[in-house]
């Protein structure tokens, strides 16, 4: 990306790019902290965003959280942070505390959801969120409210029927939807070649008569531009766009997985040469918008946010067992 030219004909909002970098670093550092807490036995489970921060933050910052909605999947720490969820809120969920805004400690970590911030609650069976997103977008169209919905998923999820059903539905009804496939090459252990017989998921867009765009996930600016274009198209009533961001997964699937059995030797090392956080920092530096001093200050700030979130969540109370039966049905009391 270092050689990449700036947006043609558009003024560069350097502050926005620095915000982008901040969220990428925050996502990475918060994620790393989660692994430490897991290895210390303080957290039962981690599922990571590491390697996908560029794609995630690039999309999220091209959206308007005041009117748009997102339906993230479990790997989308970078998406939800950049969309407005705080590090404290994330950590409360991670440690299954009472005040976890996603589920009050009911769901596994990384099952994000927060109505106030337009983040739809998600589950673990993959791809259900894409039909949900089409539904959110349908409501926007019917209610004639401005805004779009972005749905996120891995490339493995594209094998599910609901991926097809959602894209077909959204394209027939020209819904304001962006479907973002974060293609990291693996569905747990299954490589892309065993998942589909095409190179690009984006090739499937033609089967729905919609644009299919491939972007490099380590280039958040490219992701940002593609999302801006897709969002404008959606707002114009021209329907959905399929964006495929080629990314990497730097960790095993989760803290319960061991990827040595299925990842070829050296592959991870090669992919690390395309680390979105490093690439973007280098790019900012090349344009002389970033220096060591700024980097040090940023890392310090991120460190404080991560420490604060960790302490806060560790001290927070667990849910009361008596709440086990709450929220099965609607109740005005609870």
């Amino acid at each position: 990306m270092a050689q990449r030219e700036l947006l043609s004909g558009q003024p560069v909002d350097w502050q926005k790019l620095k915000t982008m970098y901040y969220y990428m670093v925050l996502s990475r550092k918060l994620d790393e902290r989660m692994w430490i807490l897991n290895r210390q036995g303080k957290a039962a489970f981690v599922i990571s965003c590491q390697g996908q921060e560029g794609a995630q933050v690039g999309v999220a910052l091209a959206m308007d959280p005041s009117v748009d909605w997102i339906t993230p999947y479990y790997r989308d720490l970078g998406v939800v942070l950049a969309f407005g969820m705080t590090a404290r809120e994330v950590m409360l969920g991670f440690l299954a505390k009472r005040d976890d805004p996603s589920s009050g400690g009911r769901q596994m970590p990384s099952h994000y959801g927060l109505r106030a911030k337009h983040i739809l609650t998600g589950s673990s069976p993959v791809t259900t969120q894409v039909t949900h997103a089409a539904g959110l977008a349908l409501a926007m169209k019917v209610r004639k409210v401005p805004g779009i919905t972005a749905s996120f998923l891995g490339e493995g999820s594209t094998s599910q029927g609901e991926f097809h059903e959602a894209l077909n539905f959204a394209s027939v009804h020209k819904l304001p939807l962006i479907v973002v496939v974060e293609n990291n090459g693996y569905a747990i252990s299954v490589p892309q070649a065993h998942q589909m017989s095409v190179i690009n998921v984006a090739d499937r867009a033609s089967g729905y008569g919609i644009p299919g765009v491939v972007v490099q996930g380590s280039d958040p600016l490219a992701v940002y531009e593609a999302t801006v274009a897709a969002r404008e198209r959606a707002l114009r009533g021209e329907g959905p766009t399929l964006i495929e961001a080629k990314t990497h997964r730097y960790t095993p699937h989760s803290s319960d997985d061991d990827d040595r059995s299925y990842r070829p030797e050296g592959e991870l090392l090669r992919e690390k040469a395309d680390d979105p956080v490093v690439m973007f920092r280098n790019w900012l530096t090349t344009y002389q918008k970033w220096d060591d001093q700024q980097e040090t200050a940023l890392l310090k700030r991120v460190r404080e946010v991560v420490d604060d979130a960790t302490d806060y969540a560790e001290k927070a109370p667990y849910p009361d067992p008596s709440t086990l039966l709450d929220h099965v049905y609607y109740s005005p009391q609870v």
């Binding site: 976890d100 400690g105 009911r106 769901q107 596994m108 667990y318 849910p319 086990l324 039966l325 099965v328």
Partner: peptide, 17 residues
């Protein structure tokens, strides 16, 4: 198991289930 849709994650809730 109690009549809740599924088992919650947080240890005290899981244990209660």
């Amino acid at each position: 198991g109690p009549d809740v849709p599924a088992m919650p994650y947080s240890p005290p809730l899981e244990h209660a289930f």
